[in-house]
Nucleic acid binder design. Sequence first.
DNA 1: GCTTAAACGAGACGGTACGTCATGTCTTAAG
DNA 2: CTTAAGACATGACGTACCGTCTCGTTTAAGC
Lengths: 194, 194, 194, 194
Amino acid sequence: MYRYAGDMSTIGRPRSEAARQAVLEAVDDLLVEQGYAGVTMKGIAERAGVGRQTVYRWWSTTAEILLEACIGDARDELRTAPQPDARREIHGYLRLLEAFLLHSHAGLAYRALLGETQHDTVVRELLADADILAPSARACLERVGTHLEVELTEELHVAELVGPVVYGVLSMGAAPDLHSLADHLLAAWTPTRG
Amino acid sequence: MYRYAGDMSTIGRPRSEAARQAVLEAVDDLLVEQGYAGVTMKGIAERAGVGRQTVYRWWSTTAEILLEACIGDARDELRTAPQPDARREIHGYLRLLEAFLLHSHAGLAYRALLGETQHDTVVRELLADADILAPSARACLERVGTHLEVELTEELHVAELVGPVVYGVLSMGAAPDLHSLADHLLAAWTPTRG
Amino acid sequence: MYRYAGDMSTIGRPRSEAARQAVLEAVDDLLVEQGYAGVTMKGIAERAGVGRQTVYRWWSTTAEILLEACIGDARDELRTAPQPDARREIHGYLRLLEAFLLHSHAGLAYRALLGETQHDTVVRELLADADILAPSARACLERVGTHLEVELTEELHVAELVGPVVYGVLSMGAAPDLHSLADHLLAAWTPTRG
Amino acid sequence: MYRYAGDMSTIGRPRSEAARQAVLEAVDDLLVEQGYAGVTMKGIAERAGVGRQTVYRWWSTTAEILLEACIGDARDELRTAPQPDARREIHGYLRLLEAFLLHSHAGLAYRALLGETQHDTVVRELLADADILAPSARACLERVGTHLEVELTEELHVAELVGPVVYGVLSMGAAPDLHSLADHLLAAWTPTRG
DNA sequence: GCTTAAACGAGACGGTACGTCATGTCTTAAG
DNA sequence: CTTAAGACATGACGTACCGTCTCGTTTAAGC
């Protein structure tokens, strides 16, 4: 469970959890309703009914707020149930990923952040540290590996699994055909027999 | 070859090609020197030694300018020479793509635009229409197909070829291992015998 | 009679009288319809269907155009018929002046110019040279003088006659009571007997 | 004494009196140094070392600032000491008025505002409400009245007293002869004896 | 209970980019 | 050589958000 910073100090008025929640909800609402251009520090503060200084006290940029708002949901939404075979494992994960990127609030925030990453190096590290997609992909690969004669644990496999979907959604707004993609990945990862 | 708009009207002072070039160079310089945050309409106009109105007359947003500035170079930089076999064909293209995304000015602009795409729907269509990466990927696939027993022309194959590299660069700032990726792609696309 | 500049040159395309008229009408229309803020060089040119350079070629400022547009009408509108006695002479002129300043297009232009005079020294000289009000006031005073035992020709008398009305209209948008003003002026100018 | 708005609200950071003073001084300086054309919102803000938004927060137009800047000084500068007789009373006031209009900073601002009044109805009401000249003229008339057999309180008398000087200064840059004007006014206001 | 101290809301502060408008100059082709 | 058209560089317009600051208020913990 998430524990926000500030539990070390003991004197003075403690941080308001209500204000924190209001800010996180505000940033999510603004992103959905007004798009990324509507996500401004000023707008967030007003929407949350919170002083501007209060926002700046706990977050430096809109990206940080956005990340904190989506980080928990993202993990939950990308969790898959184990499947009986490798093909269903892969295909199930791809579908989940596609849904996350296209239709989830947290996914919308992730795409916005991934976009901002191209403009701002600080955001890149923030997002890299948060490591939103990779853990779920690694979990999938681990389970896929048990169905095959090989183990799949490397960064490369994550990129092969996740990359085509992310590229499709980011550049064209739609993922490629997931059935064929799953088949191809399976073929790529199955050792060729003599 | 690119021909800027304005060749239909015959009356009045004609559009200044010098101003157009100055703007396109200015946007490129600013992106490289100051990053995306430095790419503002005001900054472009001043850097180009051009009136602000002149910029707005021909372009609506910084994204349009960026796109026009990189579109030509991108095509050139993504052209590959034919290779003797499929593996070298694929690997050569992947290396070219990685270099483009990581080190080229045009590639920097493309990444910035792909980032902006996540914030702004208008930019998405602009970039989709420009179709920067796909043509080069399709050209590669076509040549790869002649070395195999199958043809590779679909959108899915483009995503499989391009996606892992783009995802790696966008989210972590580095492409995955291109040799292995090329091998996997070859395996995925080679019909399983026997 | 007014002769516009440009009658000395004989070679080349002659100045277009149509363009000149169009400009003068345009400036008048704009002042009435949009107020002084709407009187711009650009606006005049467009309204007149005339090239911008054509306007600049013959006039330097909007003030010059306004002056040329109103100068003729002003003279005509401020002409009074002689009256049988001094009081009617004075009162009639005051009424005419009031009407000119409050309701005439030329009077509106004059007030705008007198306003601009306070901002721009060049306009002051322009307007002083044009001498819009004084001639009519002097004509009135001359006729008044023949009804009295004194002659009234000085600048001071013009100011006494014209000043109260101009001040009232300029500062409050209305002239003072003209009957009483006429009486007072008569009293001021009648040599005290006994 | 003038009290700037903002003393009623208790929440939020209070208005900066320093910024207000800086703006009022800036507008005065600009008018004197660069003339009315130099009095721009941007220029005022920069000269005052103040944010542009701060200026717009408290004033809508340059006219409002100019008025606030001159309103206090104007009252002070137009105050006259009582005189032993009516002629000196009138002549003294006329001299004061002439000096105010021709040589005072506040008078310069008043003339600029009276000029702007001819271009902008909003300014007219602003200036009419401020009522710069009339109170001093009324005070003069009141004291003049006690030296005569009549009372002088009406708007008409103000216009007769002030009008000729204002007209002279506005249209020609100089007042008429004030000795004669004072004599004439006295003659106009003295009841004719049998 | 009183003091201390930090977080809170509100909002003014000096900046800066936005997109629009008018300025006065220029460069065309048409007459 | 003037004309209409319109692009050009310049710079003010009024708006929005930036991040900082200064208020008065609120909410604890510790004396």
